[in-house]
Design a protein around this nucleic acid. Structure first.
Lengths: 345, 345
DNA sequence: ATGAAAGCGCTAACAT
DNA sequence: ATGTTAGCGCTTTCAT
């Protein structure tokens, strides 16, 4: 009956609780946050009043006060020129989910940044840090964030010696491992599908493929994609397989559904691994369940996200972060790249 | 040379710009936001000083002042008990990306909410609204948000007559359309894979399947899944196909990769559509490109996201929102469910 | 045409 | 043991 009149719909504020409980704002704050040195009775009383009034602290106000937004951004920069849904690629889907989870364990919310949009959209978001995936060379987005005092961690060293922390892989070494495996399994002519994107993953992998081929006097058979999406990938595979000197092994460096790919290869009259050994760089969880199971090269999105978020949080909260972390890709060998013939002796 | 000393690393504030430009905070604010009635000279001068100092407005402070966080949450509530990566299902991947995009066009950031986590994690986020996907019956999350004054829109009417706005489909009608199509194509025994989840999509679809079967005196052949993931789905399909009275048509109501599914069906010695007509409720973009192309039932995640975000924004910004929006599912008929025999004359 | 001052809702020094 | 007060950085009346 004694409730002070308030506009309906208006949120209950800390001061309302204080008034209703007959104490000061400090006491309410302390009681609710477990701070200060209040007698249990007071604490409990305040809590009850707060609950009764349906009090919810204003998160924005707390964050302004704390000087931190406890919000992280996630940006994918590959194919920035195309508007596309990066969550649709298995790698990004996992990375997105893992980043969200990792953020949560540190008490941070994760905001998804669209690939494309007005410039001021980024800078108007209250972010403490950003995880930039596949930054392009001299990425303006990264520059903007750094200039705005927002912590940045990227998953690739956009350029050698980036001044911000990173998590990365030795793509060249990973690809050489795959190529060596295929050669050992009897492959004479290994084709590859890559993409000439700004991401150094592709640049490094393709270079490793070319180098590896040259060192062995093999003529490379390479298809380079122009944009995101699985259709260009399938088209590229068709082109490669109909080469006058057709390949007997294939490495697909862009994300593609393994079963869809097998489907298409079958349609072209080749069998895996009989006519064609196959390795895909993909996070698609179905790879072990296709017929035949497909060998995959994984760049560990979950681990990457965990480390990147850890670094961001350390940076934001003032704990220093050493330069970068180099991880090792995981190569899962399955039937699709099983030795064609068991060498006698 | 005259720069007032500031701690290195400390952000430049509005007041710093004001001092450097020799004007008041108001003038700076107006100049930068295109407000007020300043002479162009002043405006330009302030802008230059701001640029020179690298001034970035503090987004949190602006939002506190504005009384809005301009932040939206996205929560998926199916299988809340399992910790899983919902972005990995094609439907959610699209919905996530589309929600992010729609948020951006309205000037809102979108925060991804994990399926599982400490309760206070949600409420501590500064959200103006949440898009709750597949809320469970009497969902505590929804209750929490409503109690906290956060706007809620859900994609399903969790219960008939939810008090908050929604976007939804007539699942029963959609499924009946599919079943009629299959029957017309010559199917005698139609099997279905569903999931006994809290989502009314499943409840309604499965019910429609049972009703439709009963009305025609057909014995239903139904598999119900216990959790998320494609493995249970494939196992269920295997079980259905090895029924003593095997089906000649299959409707898969849970998200699964069409090519993986075809793969498995082929392994079991059936051909599509020869031995088995197939329809999948999936957003997997590869469906038109499998061999054979797979008929799909789509629940339009992009349109759903656009509408849901539009409603949320209207709600937040004080424009009223009428109850709900009922959309029509899209049924794309492809070779996998092509008529088995052309009825003569 | 420009500035002073109040206040968004909260927390934390610093009284008492 | 509890309250007073000063801000976090911004926008916005309202004066001048």
């Amino acid at each position: 009956m004694e409730e002070p009149e308030r506009k309906v719909g208006a949120r209950v504020r800390l001061v309302d609780v204080a008034r209703a409980a007959g104490v000061s704002k400090t006491t309410v704050s302390d009681a609710l946050n477990g701070a200060g040195r209040l007698p249990d009775a007071t604490r409990e009383h305040v809590r009850q009043v707060a609950r009764r009034l349906g009090y919810r602290p204003n998160a924005t106000a707390r964050r302004l006060r704390a000087g931190r937004s406890r919000l992280l951004g996630l940006a994918a920069r590959e194919f920035v020129e195309h508007p596309w849904f990066y969550t649709e690629l298995a790698y990004f889907a996992r990375l997105t989910a893992a980043t969200t989870r990792a953020g949560m364990t540190h008490g941070y919310g994760v905001v998804l940044l669209p690939t494309t949009g007005p410039d001021d959209y980024w800078t108007d978001l209250p972010l403490d840090g950003v995880f930039v995936v596949d930054p392009v060379e001299g990425d303006p987005l990264v520059g903007d964030f750094l200039a705005a005092g927002v912590a940045v961690v990227s998953d690739r060293r956009a350029v050698a010696g980036t001044p911000w922390p990173w998590v990365d892989f030795d793509y060249g070494a990973a690809l050489r491992g795959v190529l060596d495996h295929l050669a050992a399994a009897g492959a004479r002519r290994i084709a590859a599908v890559g993409a000439p994107t700004t991401a150094c993953y592709h640049r490094d992998s393709v270079q490793a493929y070319l180098d590896w081929s040259a060192e062995r006097g093999r003529v490379p058979l390479l298809a380079q994609l122009g944009g995101p999406g699985f259709e260009p990938t399938l088209a590229a595979v068709e082109r490669l397989l109909s080469d006058p000197e057709p390949p007997d092994a294939l490495v697909v460096l862009v994300e593609v559904s393994p079963s869809l790919l097998l489907d298409r290869i079958r349609k072209l009259g080749r069998s895996v691994p009989g006519d064609l050994l196959l390795v895909c760089a993909t996070e698609d969880p179905t790879a072990p369940f296709t017929d035949p199971p497909v060998s995959t090269l994984s760049f560990l999105p979950v681990e990457t996200a965990d480390i990147a978020v850890g670094m961001l949080v350390d940076l934001i909260e003032g704990r220093g972060v050493a330069g970068g972390r180099l991880l090792q890709a995981r190569f899962d060998i399955r039937t699709s790249s099983a030795p064609r013939s068991v060498p006698g002796g």
